[in-house]
Design a protein around this nucleic acid. Structure first.
Lengths: 189, 189
DNA sequence: TCAATTTCTTTACAAATGTAAATGCAATTC
DNA sequence: GAATTGCATTTACATTTGTAAAGAAATTGA
């Protein structure tokens, strides 16, 4: 398992003193499969670092249809990031697909560190930039590739996931029905 | 026209001294319709603030097919942002759809201001966060809505564009062919 | 263990969208 | 103002994907 501090240090060589202040804000929490970490409509306050387990983030439309948007595994930051930034209510749901644990902190407590810990704001700048880059990559794949190609990308990017989560979750991530994914798989042999 | 400084001040009430230092890095440049501002494969160095005109950003696949990803109008920051952040070569093309002007600076020169101008790094954190939020919104609409709904969203979001750019550019942005856009328009009456 | 449940695949059909070609319209050029 | 060019629309047909339902396979829980 990748530790939270090594994950952060890969972004930025933040001084040890600041890192300690930051880590002190986080406490571990355990969850069960199918638990929700965030729900659309709620007011997000917390951000997490996923240590163990698999999670998914998804949108839900008026008709209740679900659209998987991202899967999370260690190491990664987990939370309704857009909502935390804008202060609006969550647009996305985040749910556990397995049992697991994460480290959790109040996002506002982190922001409150900025004035006295410049390096922490700098770290968060880099994280925001990185999130943007990743999001753009995903957009690119949604726009340019058809479902079969996106499936190939998915398999490369998340080799651990293919056999650990339901096919219909993968189909939803690819933007197709389980039926269609089944056809794509069949065609590949 | 929205000025660059008012655009920046809406993000962050950065002190006047820092704002001046920042603005001094930018110089105006004029372009003609169909000019390229950035091309895939190049090494991006510059970032711009669009003052006048319309631009598009698009991906291009191996077969040469183009996929519009975003349109730009005043006020907005324009540039191969992901490439500037990662230091990799541009993945996207940016092209003028009309004549126009923008203010331009070396991105590295801005970064070099961070150590002595904390407020500028803070501003850029907010910008990165905002870009992420906007990108996620776009992802949401790509994933959840069908072409007809995305067209309605486009019309609301870019009312000025509908009659100022070619239909096939809009179709490309929506992820459909001009034929299909024509059918959607016909159905609406 | 085994019945119940969930998930995956398959099938037939329907709907949405793409492709290619033809047409008409409007702007541009000479 | 006639010819040219580029663009939007329309049409017929092909392809992709969705929907609904059924059956097979895998998983779960008593």
């Amino acid at each position: 398992m990748h530790s939270f501090s090594s994950y952060l240090l890969a972004y930025s060589n933040i001084p040890n003193s600041s890192l300690e202040v930051l880590l002190k804000l986080f406490t571990p929490r355990h969850f069960k499969k199918n638990d929700f970490y965030a729900r659309a409509g709620e007011h997000a306050k917390k951000i997490g670092f996923l240590e163990e387990g698999i999670m998914r983030a998804y949108y839900q439309n008026d008709k209740g249809e679900e659209f998987n948007k991202l899967f999370f595994m260690n190491p990664s930051i987990v939370g309704p990031y857009s909502a935390l930034i804008t202060g609006e209510t969550n647009k996305i749901n985040i749910q556990w697909l397995t049992d697991g644990t994460l480290l959790e902190a109040n996002f506002q407590d982190i922001i409150d560190l900025y004035p006295d810990n410049r390096s922490i704001e700098s770290l968060n700048r880099k994280i925001a930039e990185d999130f943007f880059v990743k999001k753009e990559k995903r957009e690119m794949s949604l726009v340019m590739f058809d479902a079969a190609e996106r499936y190939a990308v998915f398999q490369k990017e998340f080799p651990e996931l293919e056999n650990n989560i339901a096919q219909y979750h993968i189909a939803s991530y690819l933007g197709i029905t389980p039926t269609q994914l089944s056809r794509i798989r069949a065609k590949k042999g």
